[in-house]
């Protein structure tokens, strides 16, 4: 069983690195979708089937689609790739890379010395998750609703942009979208 976990982990890491290094945003997005899929695989292995499914449906399904939608709307494709190419020279990303390497080393060291023993994992079926979701954490769900409402209202307001109808001397705005 461990071999499956290691393969999935390897795929996730490689695809995440690809996400960061690609010039073209669409390619990066697709790599991200792959990493999400392999992540849901790991969830499944960890005995959290409900989380794995949610990952695919909501994360890969909804959020990534949103991203692609925006990229297509602004048709960023080629000239962002060109722009990113001449930007990503080694001189630029060496400093941040070292920084994150140091951070990773610290995390690695701190997690490694914890040498938590390995436990036999039981699966937590969706029923248990649903029960705990709606009995102890009911208020949490309602607050999550509030959170989403905030997101929606915010996005709606900011997304609205007034189309400039330019008269020679009278700058008049009308409200669309």
């Amino acid at each position: 069983m461990d071999s499956v976990f290691y393969i999935a982990a390897f795929v996730t890491v490689i695809s995440t690195i690809m996400v960061i290094t690609r010039h073209n945003p669409v390619h990066a997005l697709l790599y991200l979708v792959i990493s999400l899929l392999s992540l849901s695989m790991i969830f499944f292995l960890l005995g959290a089937p409900f989380a794995a499914l949610l990952e695919i449906i909501i994360y890969a399904g909804a959020i990534m689609v949103l991203f692609i939608f925006v990229i297509m709307l602004l048709n960023l494709g080629k000239e962002t790739a060109k722009q990113e190419k001449e930007w990503l020279k080694p001189k630029v990303w060496i400093g941040p890379a070292i920084l994150s390497a140091i951070l990773f080393a610290e995390l690695f060291y701190l997690i490694a010395i914890a040498h938590a023993a390995s436990y036999n994992l039981q699966t937590v079926n969706p029923k248990a998750v649903a029960l705990s979701l709606f009995r102890p954490y009911l208020i949490g769900v309602e607050l999550a609703a509030m959170l989403l409402m905030a997101g929606v209202v915010g996005a709606a307001h900011i997304g609205q942009h007034k189309k400039m109808v330019l008269h020679r001397f009278l700058k008049e705005e009308d409200d669309t979208l």
Binding site: L143, M146, L147, A150, G151, V153, G154, A155, H157, I158
Partner: peptide
């Protein structure tokens, strides 16, 4: 909730 509200 606080942070998302503040974004907007």
């Amino acid at each position: 909730i606080l942070t998302v509200g503040l974004y907007a």
